[in-house]
Design a protein around this nucleic acid. Structure first.
Lengths: 230, 230
DNA sequence: CCAAAAGTGTTGTTGATACACCCATGT
DNA sequence: ACATGGGTGTATCAACAACACTTTTGG
C-alpha cells in the first residue's frame, strides 16, 4: 500500500488484502499497481491506511469495497506483519487479511475502479512491493489449511455449481488429485449441499446437476457436533 | 496492559500474552495484577508496549522474559484486536499472542518478578480489564484447534512424560474423554515419541515408562508427508 | 458412433471405537 | 489383599482408496 496521505488515519497501521479468485480451474490473486512513491508501476496487494474510528475488519471491508464494489465478502484476518524494516522509509505495521471472491460477481461490478488491477495465477506472481510476497505465501498456507477445516471454498464458486467444479477447486488449492467417485460420496455424505432442480446448460456432454451451499444447514450440523473435514 | 509510559514505544500498539500452563490435570492461565491507572487491582493478561525498533514477536518474547525469566518458549501470534473502543481512554491496538509453558520450569525461575502474577483455572477466570476476556476466549478456541493439528501440546508438559499424562492433557484441553488403550495405539503409531529407558519414580502404583517428544523426528516425518492429526 | 463428462457399484484395507483383561507396585 | 494406574489384546464398524463400469448428451 502507499505511504502517503495520513490524515484521519491511525498512525502507522495499514491493512493489506490478499484477494483469491478461481477461474477456469486455476487459483488466482488480484493485485493492484502502485501509483505513487518510489515504486510506481510495481504490483502489490490491495491496501490502505486504517482510520482512527474504524476497526481493522471495517477498514478491510471498506478498502475492498472501494476497489471492487463488492459487499459481504468472506474476509478473515491473517496476521499482523511487524518487522520494523518491512517498509524502508518509516515504520509501518500492517494487518493482513485474505478474502475469497466469486469471479463472476467481480466481473460484473468492477468497472468503476480507481486503480489498475489484475488477476495473476499463483505461478505467475511477480516481485511485489515491501514484504507482500511473504504475506502472500503466508496466506496461501493459511488458505490450504482452512479450506480443509471449514466450508469456505464455496465462496470462490458461483452460487450454483457442479460437484466436479468443487472437486477441481480442491484439487487446485491443495495441489492434489482426487478420485471423482470418492469425492462425490464424501461430499454428498456430509449432507451439506442442497441439490437443485437444475442442470448445466450448453455443455457438449451430459449436463451435471447443480448444487448450492447452505450456510444455515452447516450451522445446524455444527451444533449437532458435525465437523467439516476434507 | 497499562496505558502509560510511551517513551521509545510504537504509538498505540501493545502486545498481550495469553500464557497457558498445565498443572495436576487442569489447564491454567497466568494473569497479572494491574498496578497503575483506573483499574488498580484488576487482573489482566500480561502485556506491554511494542517498541519502535522491535517486531511484535520480539516484543512478546521480551515481555514474557521480563515476567518469567523464561526463554525459548512456544509463542504464536493470535490476532490483532482493533476495536476503536476496546480501551476507553484512547485508541490502542493490541497484537495478542498465546504461549504454552511448562509449569515446572516456570516455578523454578519466576522468583524475581516485578508484578503480582497468579495462575487461574479456566473455570475461575475473573472479569479482566479491557477486552481481555474476549482475547482469552479467542485464544482458547485457537488452542483447541491447533493442538489437534500440530504437536504443540508437549510444550505444556515436562520434558519427560508418561502417555497417561499426555492423554489427560488432551482430555482437559479438548474437554473430551479418551480411551486409554486407543490413545496409546494412536500416539505410538505415529512414531513421534522417543521411549526412554526410564520410569516414573515414587508413585504408589506400577511405574509408567517415560517418553519425550523429538522435534527433529517430527520435521523428518513431516517432510515425508506425515501430518499430525489428533 | 464417438468423445467427454456424469454418475453408480464393488472390493479390499485401514483406522477408530468399545471393551475385556492381565500386570506391577506401594500401602 | 486391594487399590491404582500401567499396559495388551480383540471384535466390530465406518471411512477411504482404487478401479471398473454404465449413462447421457452434443457433434
Amino acid at each position: 500500500m502507499t505511504i502517503a496521505n495520513k490524515e484521519s488515519t491511525n498512525e502507522g497501521i495499514t491493512i493489506d488484502c490478499v484477494i483469491f479468485g478461481f477461474n477456469k480451474q486455476s487459483l488466482e490473486i488480484l493485485l493492484v499497481q502502485h501509483a505513487e512513491g518510489e515504486s510506481i508501476g510495481k504490483w502489490g496487494l490491495l491496501g490502505g491506511w486504517m482510520r482512527k474510528e474504524e476497526s481493522a475488519d471495517d477498514a478491510a471491508q471498506r478498502i475492498l469495497y472501494e476497489l471492487t464494489s463488492l459487499d459481504n465478502i468472506y474476509l478473515e484476518q491473517l496476521k499482523a506483519f511487524t518487522d520494523p524494516n518491512r517498509v524502508s522509509s518509516q515504520r509501518v505495521v500492517t494487518i493482513a487479511y485474505y478474502t475469497l471472491v466469486n469471479r463472476e460477481d467481480y466481473n460484473i461490478k468492477a468497472s468503476a475502479t480507481l486503480r489498475e488491477a489484475k488477476w495473476f495465477k499463483i505461478k505467475d506472481i511477480p516481485n511485489l512491493i515491501f514484504d507482500h510476497n511473504e504475506i502472500l505465501d503466508f496466506s496461501l498456507t493459511q488458505l490450504r489449511n482452512r479450506v480443509r477445516q471449514a466450508p469456505i471454498g464455496f465462496n470462490l464458486l458461483p452460487e450454483k455449481f457442479t460437484l466436479l467444479q468443487l472437486m477441481h477447486l480442491y484439487e487446485e488449492i491443495l495441489s492434489i488429485e482426487l478420485d471423482k467417485s470418492n469425492f462425490r460420496r464424501k461430499i454428498l455424505h456430509m449432507k451439506l449441499l442442497v441439490p437443485l432442480d437444475e442442470k448445466q446448460q450448453d455443455v457438449s456432454h451430459r449436463a451435471a446437476k447443480l448444487y448450492k451451499f447452505d450456510a444455515e444447514i452447516y450451522e445446524k450440523l455444527t451444533e449437532k457436533g458435525f465437523n467439516f473435514e476434507f
